[in-house]
């Protein structure tokens, strides 16, 4: 019996007159890789941003590893606890440009966990080695390629030893030749049993790595299943239309 790490129950989010998330129910098990697909503006990024409280929501609740987020909760202990154990990788990397690659990675372990600097640096070096850029530790983010920057961002999130990783279109801002190196790191991470929620347009990656694929349309989950079920035999006609658009290319 798998342990559930994320439970979203009837989550509703409004952004002004827009109803961005509609009654979203979703449970993610430990070790599971859930890939969320959908057209732009469908609410897929908003959905994962609700999980670590970057987006407030108005209805329902979210439980992450026993910590319950309620609507409007902004600065609660639960939110703090969730953010300590949920890592996030952004489309635009969001590395800290004023800190070296190594200092990007050590900031949170030192400030949040109180780990000694020397020890945090050892962790950073090990993670940089793992994502294949051990030789770039002293550089600043602007000196790296996009693919390298995104791998640093993954290492930075991993340094907090998260139980769950959120990926918000991690390859959408990359030049095509750099997408592979980032997906490789993610694939490896999934292989090691990391629980992941991934928003992406990389359908090949979704098919290969996902345990479950979710299709979201207008803020609603309208189809979910294994990659085979969703990609090869979608039941909903909107999913069929979306897939026929994106898979043609």
């Amino acid at each position: 019996m798998a342990e559930t790490i994320v439970t979203m129950s009837r989550v509703n989010k409004h952004f002004g007159p827009l109803h961005v998330l509609r009654d979203v129910d979703l449970a993610v098990d430990v070790g599971e890789v859930v890939v969320i697909i959908g057209a732009s503006g469908s609410g897929k990024s908003t959905l994962i941003r609700c999980v670590n409280g970057l987006e407030p929501f108005q209805g329902g609740h979210i439980v992450v590893d026993g910590n319950r987020l309620a609507p409007g909760g902004r600065n609660t202990a639960a939110l703090r606890a969730i953010r300590k154990e949920v890592g996030m990788v952004f489309q635009q990397f969001n590395l800290f440009p004023h800190r070296t690659v190594r200092d990007n990675i050590t900031l949170a372990p030192v400030r949040v966990k109180g780990i000694a600097r020397g020890q945090a640096e050892a962790i950073a070096n090990r993670l940089l080695d793992r994502v294949g850029i051990a030789d770039q530790a002293e550089k600043y983010p602007s000196q790296l390629s996009g693919g390298q920057q995104q791998r640093v961002a993954i290492a930075r999130a991993l340094a907090m030893e998260p139980r769950l990783m959120l990926f918000d279109e991690p390859t959408s801002a990359l030049d095509p030749e750099m997408i592979g190196e980032v997906l490789d790191v993610m694939r490896e991470l999934a292989g090691e049993g990391m629980t992941m929620m991934v928003v992406t347009h990389e359908m090949g990656f979704a098919r290969e790595v996902a345990d479950r694929v979710i299709y979201i349309h207008s803020g609603q989950i309208i189809e979910e299943g294994t990659p085979e079920q969703v990609f090869d035999a979608p039941r909903n006609e909107r999913t069929q239309a979306f897939l026929s658009r994106v898979l043609k290319h």
Partner: peptide
């Protein structure tokens, strides 16, 4: 960029830590 603040918060830094170590130096 607000992504800087979001990155700090997502790592578990408090709002004041995020301001002090991420936003203010830049």
């Amino acid at each position: 960029d607000k992504g800087q603040r979001e990155a700090g918060l997502s790592l578990g830094l408090t709002r004041s830590q995020t301001f002090l170590h991420v936003v203010w130096p830049q």
